[in-house]
Simulated scan of single mutants.
Amino acid sequence: MRRAVEEEGFAWDGSRHGLTLSIGVVEAADQHDVSNLFCDLQAACNIAKEAGRNRVHCFDRAADDDRIGLQAIAARIDDIVERENLSLRVQQIAPAAPDSSELPHYELLLVMQNELLLQDFIAAAERYHRMTKVDRWVLTRIFSELERHPQLWTRCSSISINLSGSSLNDDRLLGFIESLFERYAVDPRNICFELTETAAVANLAKTADLVRHLQRAGCTFAIDDFGVGFSSFDYLKRLPVDYVKIDGSFVKEIERSPSDLAMVRSINEVAHALGRRTIAEYVETPSIRALLAEMGVDYVQGFGVQKPRGLGDWLSDEALLLCPS
């Protein structure tokens, strides 16, 4: 498969473009937890990329866990969460058309306050079943802060919060989220939950039930990183999310890559046909934003729109809390 993709390439407008494939392989015979299987697959694929790309890596749990240091990190997860060695940032999700009068959305981002890389911390938390604890810390912290700053909604329409695959597989998640709405004065209409492709597909029926239940309460949902996982429009049809986030790996090169441009356009058109709104990630320049607006993408996010800000600084920003003129 890898050789076939490399030999085939991609032809567009008279020019030929090279393609390579990084493949992660996991033996599934002893896997009983689908979310763990996807976690191992992601790790294997990442190792294939880090080793130089255009190769196949067969996952070996003992060797690869040691290679990326997950066991050592996992032993520190509870202490990191309990000592709150995590912090939160926000990044704006703005209408693609700069002249829009619509209030922007904001995504909540998790940040490490020590020497660990966030991707390694999350990988260890997912592998060793501690990601649910991290998600609950994030949810409790942001609900508490939102209740303390009700003026925020004069400048912001909603906050997006990521939910991991571990949390989606937790039968207690719905009850926990409902308890937060009962405990804190937060309007469900101001909350958008983001789900990754792999997490949503791992248990599609269960995830769809969760989405529908919280949508009835007023929450909205987005499918994140669309285009790099299964990219099945069939599952998108069956999962009633409100937003589709087009993965930034396609967006950032659309001015130079005809294949990426075609991918972004096709995702946008099909998402709209299914009644979903679209958000393009990794928007780094005004020209990329203009191109996305021209093709009809609804919202944009990235350094070209706004760099992430610390949650505390953002909430205390007097200009943010003033009523719009």
Results as ranks from 00 to 15, higher is better:
5 V>D: 11
14 G>M: 03
14 G>Q: 04
15 S>H: 14
16 R>F: 11
31 Q>R: 01
32 H>N: 06
33 D>V: 10
36 N>T: 13
39 C>A: 09
39 C>L: 03
41 L>Y: 15
45 C>H: 01
45 C>T: 05
46 N>G: 05
48 A>M: 02
48 A>I: 03
50 E>L: 02
50 E>W: 07
53 R>M: 02
59 F>A: 11
60 D>F: 03
63 A>S: 08
64 D>R: 05
65 D>L: 07
71 Q>I: 07
71 Q>A: 01
72 A>Y: 12
73 I>K: 02
73 I>T: 12
74 A>I: 11
74 A>S: 11
75 A>M: 04
76 R>S: 12
79 D>C: 11
85 N>Q: 10
87 S>Q: 09
88 L>W: 07
92 Q>W: 07
94 A>R: 10
94 A>S: 14
96 A>N: 09
97 A>D: 14
97 A>F: 12
99 D>E: 07
105 H>L: 10
107 E>A: 12
108 L>G: 14
112 M>P: 01
114 N>S: 06
116 L>K: 01
117 L>R: 01
118 L>K: 05
120 D>A: 13
120 D>P: 10
121 F>E: 04
130 R>Q: 14
130 R>M: 11
130 R>D: 07
132 T>M: 06
133 K>G: 12
136 R>V: 01
138 V>Y: 06
146 L>E: 14
146 L>M: 11
148 R>G: 09
150 P>Y: 12
153 W>C: 13
154 T>E: 15
154 T>L: 15
155 R>T: 08
156 C>V: 09
158 S>M: 01
161 I>Q: 04
163 L>V: 05
168 L>Q: 11
172 R>C: 06
173 L>P: 14
182 E>A: 10
183 R>C: 05
183 R>E: 12
193 F>Y: 15
194 E>M: 00
200 A>P: 08
201 V>K: 07
203 N>C: 04
205 A>F: 15
205 A>D: 15
213 H>G: 06
213 H>T: 09
217 A>T: 04
218 G>K: 06
223 I>M: 08
227 G>A: 06
227 G>M: 02
230 F>T: 10
235 Y>K: 09
237 K>C: 01
239 L>H: 12
241 V>N: 13
241 V>P: 13
248 G>R: 02
252 K>Q: 04
252 K>P: 01
252 K>W: 08
256 R>H: 03
258 P>W: 00
258 P>I: 00
264 V>D: 13
266 S>C: 07
267 I>R: 13
267 I>L: 07
269 E>H: 13
270 V>M: 09
272 H>S: 08
272 H>F: 09
273 A>P: 02
274 L>P: 10
275 G>W: 02
278 T>I: 02
279 I>C: 03
280 A>L: 00
280 A>H: 06
283 V>P: 08
283 V>Y: 12
285 T>F: 13
288 I>E: 00
292 L>N: 04
293 A>C: 01
300 V>F: 13
302 G>F: 00
302 G>E: 00
303 F>I: 10
303 F>Y: 12
304 G>N: 00
305 V>H: 05
309 R>Q: 09
311 L>P: 15
312 G>D: 05
320 L>S: 14
323 C>V: 06
324 P>L: 00
